[in-house]
């Protein structure tokens, strides 16, 4: 690793003021499971300063005030997996966190780092977008809240400024009649090979008709988003295999309309359709 200055910060105030001072010369360090690998690569620009936020206690909690869930960015994947609140009100996020890397990676990797690294295969992002999560970005001068789905420009690039710190992720608890799921193919490795995944949420009324549907594929589209084109097909219908197959095909079509046909399409086209069907079935 090439030399850099290191600064541990102990509060959000301190973090944003150090970030304001160094701007794009600084990199934020949380769990380090992405950043350390990057810092050791030969051909990357080494930051002047690494700002270690991992000691900021106020950024490591899961709270559930009035019908919402507030996740702070330093919550680790292991903490998500063992959280009763997440299990009860956002179980798809728990499923996603539980298949990240290995126990060692889950103990260290944080949800904030997962989001801000913006790798195509970031597993907590599809569930959080399906949940309609909003995030708060703080800088010394400003604090803004945006939809998580508006954060991303392309893989590894977000709209956050260099001096902005992610301080909060919040979303509504799922209603008791909503069921959710997250399905991912295979295990990813540190070499960032994208793995297809699907996050889904279905809500049915007491007659079994679908009243709300959310489908967010991972590693399929240039940026993550709900595939409303497929969700629409489900509303007002009763679940059936044919219906879910149709929805899967729709997601596949939408994917190809974005990415065009390339070497991986032959594989991804049928696979994403099947994953969508399975994710929807897992919501029943």
């Amino acid at each position: 690793m090439k030399p850099f200055e290191y600064k541990a910060v102990h509060s959000v105030e301190e973090a944003v003021s150090v970030l304001a001072e160094y701007g794009s010369d600084a990199r934020i360090l949380a769990g380090g499971t992405d950043l350390l690998i990057e810092l050791r690569k030969q051909n990357v620009k080494t930051p002047k300063v690494v700002i270690d936020i991992s000691f900021i206690k106020e950024l490591r909690s899961i709270e559930s005030p009035n019908g919402t869930i507030v996740l702070r960015p330093l919550v680790t994947h292991s903490e998500i997996v063992t959280s009763k609140v997440i299990q009860q009100y956002a179980s798809l996020l728990m499923s996603a966190a539980s298949v990240i890397g290995s126990p060692q990676i889950r103990n260290k990797g944080t949800v904030g780092g997962n989001i801000m690294n913006a790798a195509t295969c970031a597993d907590t992002v599809p569930p959080l977008i399906a949940l309609g999560a909003k995030i708060t970005l703080r800088s010394k001068a400003n604090s803004r809240q945006i939809d998580l789905s508006d954060l991303f420009v392309k893989p590894y690039q977000t709209k956050a400024q260099a001096e902005e710190l992610l301080t909060e992720i919040n979303f509504l608890k799922l209603s008791p009649n909503a069921k959710s799921s997250f399905i991912k193919l295979g295990r990813r490795n540190a070499l960032a090979i994208s793995r297809l995944s699907v996050a889904a949420i279905l809500t049915q009324d007491k007659n079994g008709k679908i009243t709300d549907a959310r489908i967010v594929p991972g590693a399929a589209l240039p940026v993550w988003r709900r595939v409303t084109e497929a969700e629409k097909l489900l509303i007002g219908e009763k679940p059936s295999k044919e219906l879910f197959v149709t929805a899967g095909q729709k997601v596949s079509e939408v994917m190809i309309s974005h990415t065009g046909r390339r070497w991986s399409t032959e594989y991804k086209e049928p696979v994403i359709a099947v994953l969508v069907r399975r994710a929807l079935e897992a919501c029943l």
């Binding site: 380090g32 690998i37 270690d52 060692q104 990676i105 103990n107």
Partner: peptide
């Protein structure tokens, strides 16, 4: 790169890959 686990140590009782911990983080 966090793949093999040969470097596993316990940090405050939790298993972590020591190849993905920056030394000052153990303060």
């Amino acid at each position: 790169i966090g793949e093999c686990g040969a470097c596993t140590v316990l940090l405050d009782g939790e298993a972590v890959n020591s190849c993905l911990v920056l030394v000052p983080q153990i303060d």
